[in-house]
Amino acid sequence: MITPSYSVLIIEDEKNILDFMTKALKANNYKVFTAASGNAGLALITSQCPDVVLLDLGLPDIDGNEIISSVRQWTSCPIIVVSARSSERDKVTALDLGADDYITKPFGTPELLARIRASLRHSNRMESSGPLYIHPYQCHGLIIDFEKRMISLHGKPVHLTPVEYKIVAFLARNSGKVMTYSAIMSNIWGPYTDSNNRILRVNMANIRRKLELNPAQPEYIFTEVGVGYRMKEDEYEAG
């Protein structure tokens, strides 16, 4: 069976970074399109319908956030921001506008490939009856069985409250991707929940006490300070 070649559009005006990403992706069997400006990138998104978009925010003609807003009006195609802007505000803004993930320059090939895999996995799970959606999450002895709503750690059951389970399951289904505080809270408590994330932080502290050997140095759920949380990528998908 031949593995399908996914297409990736890179919208980036720095030639050395564009060349680096293009070479890395082609070496890993991705079909690559490139654009050095926002308008050219928008035209390619419309004409080529890529499987993933890698988007720089600091483009010469359009701010990358405007592209995210425009694209999200008509497609759920995964968008991974690749930017030198590293502030919490920039990350939260892009993610809340509809970006699926955010990588800060500089970065290495393994991280880039892992983020792309995570975004592709999530986009292919939109059909909840698909096999990718229901397979258990597995990582370093942690197993989450979504169908049975059961969690085990090194073969021993882990008992979470219903809310704690919903948080962990949501992060696991999006493993490898940073999820903003607002995205998590909206998913767990509904769109009209209080914007204060204290209740989420309290639940996360309890979750880490139950899952992590050392909660201060987590192995499974990482904090993106001021932005949200990221769960370690599913070993099943990381291959």
Score class of each variant (00 low, 15 high):
I207N: 02
L113W: 00
S47A: 14
H135W: 08
V82P: 05
R121T: 09
M1R: 13
T104L: 03
K156H: 09
G176L: 06
P78V: 12
F107G: 03
Y30K: 05
Q48K: 15
A27R: 15
G108C: 01
S186V: 07
S195M: 07
N206W: 00
G108A: 02
T193G: 02
I184C: 00
Q217E: 12
E88M: 14
F170H: 08
G228I: 11
L153K: 14
P60K: 05
T193P: 00
A172N: 05
L132T: 00
L113H: 02
A35E: 01
E212L: 04
E127L: 13
Y6D: 07
L213I: 15
D90Y: 01
V52C: 12
S123N: 03
D61S: 03
R85D: 07
V168H: 01
I151K: 03
E224N: 13
E235R: 05
R115T: 11
P78T: 12
A205N: 15
L57M: 10
S83D: 08
G108Y: 06
H154G: 03
V92A: 12
W189Q: 02
V92G: 03
R89Q: 11
E235M: 09
I221A: 10
R230D: 04
R198E: 12
A216H: 11
N29F: 14
M185Y: 04
R85F: 08
K210R: 15
L132M: 11
R173I: 05
R72M: 05
L160Q: 02
A84C: 04
E235C: 06
S7V: 12
P106C: 02
W189K: 01
Y165I: 04
R198T: 14
S86E: 09
L95Y: 01
H159T: 13
M1E: 14
T46L: 12
R117S: 04
L57R: 00
N206K: 15
T193Q: 01
N174H: 14
N65C: 13
G176M: 01
S86P: 00
D51Y: 06
K31V: 13
R115Q: 08
L9G: 05
T93W: 00
A84G: 13
A36K: 05
Q48F: 07
T3F: 09
K177W: 00
E127R: 11
S119M: 00
G239S: 11
K26P: 01
S7P: 01
Y192S: 08
L9E: 05
V52M: 04
A118F: 04
M179T: 14
S7C: 09
S69R: 09
M204V: 08
I151W: 04
G228K: 07
C139I: 00
D96W: 02
A99I: 09
I2W: 10
F33Y: 15
L9I: 08
S5E: 15
A94I: 03
H159D: 10
A183C: 08
A205L: 11
R149L: 08
Q48N: 10
C139P: 06
L113A: 01
